[in-house]
Design a protein around this nucleic acid. Structure first.
Lengths: 146, 146
DNA sequence: AAATTAAAGGATAAAATTGTCCGGTATTTA
DNA sequence: TAAATACCGGACAATTTTATCCTTTAATTT
C-alpha cells in the first residue's frame, strides 16, 4: 500500500505526537526504538517531514522532535503520505494508465473510484493528534509487543 | 497501489482475453504494443502467469498467448495480483506492523479494514473475461489513445 | 528433415527504494 | 567559552524492482 518510508514516517509522527501531547520532546533513538524502525533511515524521513513543516525539530541537548499543538490538531495522515510518497498513489490509475478518466477509463476505473475516494477521505479526516490519543489510550499500537 | 509488473500483467491478461474471446491467439510483440508496455519485461510477467496456469502459451509459428474459455470465465483479477505481487498488499497492515489484528491493532486498523475488504471483494469478483468484454465493447481501454 | 517462428530461461544492467555512515551545524549546559 | 548533545546533510552501500539481451527449446511450415 504505502512505501516503507511512509509507514515509518506515519508511525514516527504518531509516536512524536503522543509524546508531544504529554509535553515531551523525543529524540531519534527513542523514536526508532518505540516504532521498531531503522534509526538512520527514520532520520531521513523525519528530515523530510520537518522540511514540509508537518513536524518540528530542535537541535542540541534536550532537543529532538515534537508536534506543536497546531500541528497535532491540523496535520493529517494525508499530508504525511503526500509529503513522503507523493500524490501518485492517491490519484493514479490502478492499471497504470497515464491518463485514466471518464474520457478513456481503464476497465476497472468506475469500480476503483469509490474505493480510492474512501481511502482519500480516510487519510484526509484523520489527524496525527487524533491517532496519537488512540495510542495513548491503549487502543492502538505502533509496534509489536510480545 | 500495484507494482508495475502487476499493472502490465493485468492489462496484458485482459488484452489476451479480449483476443481469445474472438478466437485469436496473440504474440508478445502485439501484446506489448497494444498495452503500451516494455516487451521483454512483459514476457517475464507472462511467463509467471503461464506457470501459475492463469493463461496459456503455445510455442512456434502461429503460437502465442491465449486464455481458454475456462480461464476467461474463472480467472479473477485477484489471482493475477496474488501471482505477481503476492498476498502481502491484500492482507498486510497499512502502517507496516508485522502482526496487526484486533489483538494489537495499529491506530488505523479498524478504519482501513473495510476499505481493504472492499478492494479484496472487487478483485475477487471480476474475471478477466468480464473485463475483456468491457474493452471489446469500447467501454474500457488498456492504453492511452490520442 | 530443414528452416522459420515464437515462447522459455538465464544472465546482466539500470533505476528506485531502503538503509548506513560520518562530518558539519546549532543549541544547551557546565 | 568549551564540551557535550542531537538534528542536518551528503556520500555511499545493499536490496528490490524494472528492464534488456541472447541463447535454448518447442512447434509449425515448407
Amino acid at each position: 500500500m504505502f512505501s516503507k518510508a511512509c509507514e515509518y514516517g506515519i508511525r514516527a509522527a504518531i509516536y512524536i505526537g503522543q509524546q508531544s501531547a504529554g509535553g515531551r520532546r523525543v529524540g531519534l533513538k527513542d523514536i526508532a526504538a518505540e516504532i521498531d524502525s531503522p534509526e538512520a533511515f527514520t532520520a531521513k524521513i523525519l528530515q523530510q517531514l520537518v522540511r514540509a513543516q508537518l513536524l518540528t525539530s530542535v537541535k542540541g541537548p534536550t532537543g529532538g522532535f515534537e508536534l506543536t499543538p497546531e500541528q497535532l490538531r491540523t496535520v493529517t495522515l494525508r499530508q504525511l503520505v503526500v509529503a513522503i510518497d507523493g500524490g501518485a498513489m492517491l490519484q493514479g490509475c490502478a492499471l497504470g494508465l497515464p491518463q485514466c478518466s471518464a474520457q478513456q477509463p481503464c476497465p476497472m476505473h468506475y469500480q476503483f473510484l469509490p474505493i480510492r475516494d474512501q481511502l482519500n477521505e480516510l487519510l484526509r479526516t484523520h489527524t496525527i493528534g487524533e491517532l496519537a490519543s488512540k495510542v495513548q489510550e491503549g487502543l492502538g499500537f505502533l509496534k509489536q509487543f510480545s
